[in-house]
Simulated scan of single mutants.
Amino acid sequence: MRDAETVTFGGSALDRAAELRGEPDLLERARRDGAGQSVLLWRGKPLVRAGTLGRLARLPLDHPVLADSGIKGLLLGREDDGSLVFVHDLSGWWNPPDVIEAELNQFRDATEQRHPDLPQTLVFAELRRIMTRLSPRDAELAAIAKGLTGWHAIHGFCARCGAPSRIVQAGWQRHCDACGGQHFPRTDPVVIMLILHGNSVLMGRSPGWPEGMYSLLAGFIEPGETIEAAVRREVFEESGIRVGDVQYLASQPWVFPASLMLGCIGEALSDAITIDPLEIEHAMWVPREEIAAAFAGQHPTLAPARPGAIAHFLLRNWLADTMD
């Protein structure tokens, strides 16, 4: 698919500077030399410029607020000008008094948080809400930062022996001194499918989604399973539809919390839908004309997949006949 790398969170060609990860004093040297900056997270929400929310904030490495972060100095990569970009996470110590926990990081979290020690022109905002406003580079940095800090937040102990592990390799590995175990950030592969039958596409919705919102079917790949087999299994489990030919189209890192979405197109061999209510709430065949109306905001009941998500990306390319 020729436009595959224009998907949100991909295509900025960030240099991850992996050869620098083994240098233990990298953060201190970058701070001393003024050769780097840091992005900042709070509970997975990146710090961005208030107002348009379209620019990822970068702080100098000697900014006082960075000293109080729990997870600090993880290397994200190297900018085109040679400067290094790190991430610091304030989730562990800063707790705004007006936060409503139930709203945070939900499907439509519109809350913004301002840190008292930072300019009030900067806010923490939910990444899915702002992802299409960010530049490709800012979006990629924010996704890496969220995924990496999120993994460390729940992997503080060795999975082999249970002892505390420590961060090494500039954040890209954890080491257990007790048993020697080495642990690396994980990514869970997920297939998401544009399943076609004639001029229609198979759409489904999960419980709790906003009213009228439908998306493409998706599911995790199981151990020992190919991408193609996962597409066929997931579609049949969720909708009862048998799928024949399957082709890979594009991928998207989806750090909510740790998935790699593998976009595929498949040919339906049947059209009778029988949903599994434990998997999805509803599924239906939607003609191309109705998808076009939904994208234009003119459909009376159907809302398209979230802009920025690979489902929206695949559907848009299908409508434009740019799948090859």
Rank of each mutant, 00 (worst) to 15 (best):
Arg49Cys: 07
Lys45Thr: 10
Pro64Met: 07
Leu53Gln: 02
Val39Cys: 03
Glu28Gly: 15
Leu26Gln: 09
Ser12Trp: 08
Arg55Asn: 06
Ala30Gln: 06
Leu47Pro: 00
Leu14Cys: 12
Ser38Val: 02
Gly51Met: 08
Gln37Val: 14
Gly36Arg: 01
Trp42Thr: 02
Gly22Arg: 03
Arg43Thr: 06
Leu20Thr: 07
Leu41Thr: 05
Gly54Ile: 09
Ser38Lys: 00
Leu59Ser: 03
Gly54Val: 04
Arg21Val: 13
His63Ile: 06
Arg29Tyr: 14
Ala50Lys: 03
Arg32Lys: 13
Ala67Gln: 14
Ala57Val: 07
Leu66Lys: 05
Arg58Thr: 03
Leu40Pro: 00
Ala18Asp: 15
Leu26Tyr: 10
Asp15Leu: 13
Arg16Cys: 10
Leu56Ile: 00
Ala17Asp: 14
Pro46Gly: 04
Asp25Val: 14
Arg55Leu: 10
Thr52Ser: 14
Thr52Tyr: 06
Leu61Arg: 00
Ala13Val: 14
Leu41Arg: 03
Arg32Tyr: 11
Gly54Cys: 07
Leu56Pro: 01
Leu40Val: 08
Arg29Thr: 15
Ala67Met: 12
Trp42Phe: 05
Arg29Gly: 12
Arg31His: 10
Gly11Ser: 02
Ala50Cys: 12
Leu59Phe: 08
Asp68Val: 12
Arg29Ala: 10
Ala18Val: 15
Leu61Met: 03
Pro60Val: 06
Trp42Glu: 00
Arg43His: 13
Leu41Glu: 01
Asp25Phe: 12
Leu61Lys: 02
Gly54Leu: 07
Asp15Tyr: 15
Leu56Lys: 01
Ala17Arg: 11
Ser38Tyr: 02
Gly54Glu: 06
Pro24Tyr: 07
Val39Ser: 02
Val65Arg: 03
Val48Leu: 04
Leu47Ile: 04
Asp25Thr: 15
Pro24Met: 01
Gly44Tyr: 00
Glu19Ala: 09
Ala57Thr: 07
Leu47Thr: 03
Pro24Gly: 01
Ala57Cys: 09
Arg58Trp: 08
Leu59Asp: 06
Trp42Met: 05
Leu26Glu: 06
Gly44Asn: 00
Gly54Ser: 07
Pro46Glu: 11
Arg49Trp: 13
Arg21Gly: 11
Leu66Phe: 14
Leu27His: 04
Gly22Thr: 11
Gln37Asp: 12
Leu47Cys: 05
Val48Cys: 04
Asp33Thr: 15
Leu56Asp: 05
Leu61Tyr: 02
Ala50Gly: 09
Arg32Asp: 10
Gly22Lys: 03
Arg49Gln: 11
Glu28Asn: 13
Leu66Gly: 09
Pro24Asn: 04
